[in-house]
Design a protein around this nucleic acid. Structure first.
Length: 200
DNA sequence: CAGTGGATGCTCT
DNA sequence: GAGCATCCACTGT
C-alpha cells in the first residue's frame, strides 16, 4: 500500500462543511499510531451546538486561532476529543474526529485501550484519543508537524451522512459524515442517511 | 439487541 | 448548580 502524500495546511483554509466530508479516507497518525478517518462531524460558528458559538473562552481558544491546528477538549470530565480547526482564522469552526479504522501501531493501541477487539480501538472520539494518546498537551498544535501526520484522502469513496451524535441543540443538521460500510464507526448511520460520492 | 446510571472535570449561569 | 460534541458496566428482553 503506497504511503499517501501529506496534506498541506491550506487544506483547512475553507468552509468546515467542505473539509469535513473531504477528510473521510484521510490518514491520521500521532507519533506513527493511528489509521484511516472513517467518521467526523462539522461544527460551524453559527451553530448553537458548537463550542465556539458563544465566543472565545480559555477552553476553546484554539478554535479561534489559525486553521490546520488541533483543538482538544475534555469531554464529560473523563475523555479527550480532538478537532481539526477550519476556515479563515477566527472562524471558530472545526471538524470533530469521531472514528478511525486502525492501520498503524495496532499493538500500542491494544495496550492503551486494554482491549483485544480492534473494532473498538478508535470507534468514538474519546476512544480514539485514548488509542492515540491525545491530551490537552496537543491542543493548538499544527497538524502538519510532528507528532501529527495527516495523509491525503483516498479517492473514490462513498460517504454517508446523518445527524450528529450526543448533542441537544441543532439536532437535525445532517453534519455527521462516515465512510460507507465501515466496520469501525462509533455507531451505525440510521435510516435518514444520504449517500455522497467523491471521485476524481 | 435496548435502556439506565455512574464516573468525573470543567465552563458557564 | 446545571449541563455537557463520552464510555463502560450492568440490567432486561
Amino acid at each position: 500500500m503506497p504511503r499517501p502524500r501529506q496534506l498541506h495546511r491550506s487544506f483547512f483554509d475553507r468552509s468546515v462543511h467542505e473539509v469535513a466530508p473531504a477528510l473521510i479516507g484521510a490518514t491520521f497518525l500521532v507519533d506513527g499510531v493511528g489509521g484511516t478517518v472513517v467518521e467526523v462531524e462539522a461544527y460551524d460558528h453559527e451553530d448553537p451546538a458548537a463550542h465556539g458559538y458563544r465566543g472565545r473562552t480559555p477552553r476553546n481558544a484554539a478554535m479561534f486561532g489559525p486553521p490546520g491546528r488541533a483543538y482538544v477538549y475534555r469531554s464529560y470530565g473523563l475523555h479527550w476529543c480532538v478537532n481539526f480547526v477550519c476556515g479563515p482564522e477566527g472562524d471558530a469552526s472545526a471538524v470533530l474526529i469521531r472514528a478511525l479504522a486502525p492501520t498503524a501501531g495496532l499493538e500500542v493501541m491494544r495496550k492503551r485501550r486494554g482491549l483485544e477487539d480492534a473494532r473498538l480501538f478508535c470507534a468514538g472520539p474519546g476512544r480514539l484519543c485514548e488509542a492515540l494518546a491525545i491530551t490537552r498537551a496537543h491542543d493548538g498544535l499544527a497538524l502538519d508537524r510532528p507528532p501529527f501526520w495527516l495523509g491525503a484522502p483516498q479517492t473514490d469513496v462513498e460517504i454517508v451522512t446523518g445527524p450528529r451524535i450526543g448533542i441537544s441543540k441543532a439536532v437535525d443538521q445532517p453534519w455527521r459524515y462516515g465512510l460507507k460500510g465501515s466496520r469501525f464507526l462509533s455507531r451505525p448511520f440510521g435510516r435518514a442517511r444520504r449517500t455522497l460520492s467523491r471521485t476524481r
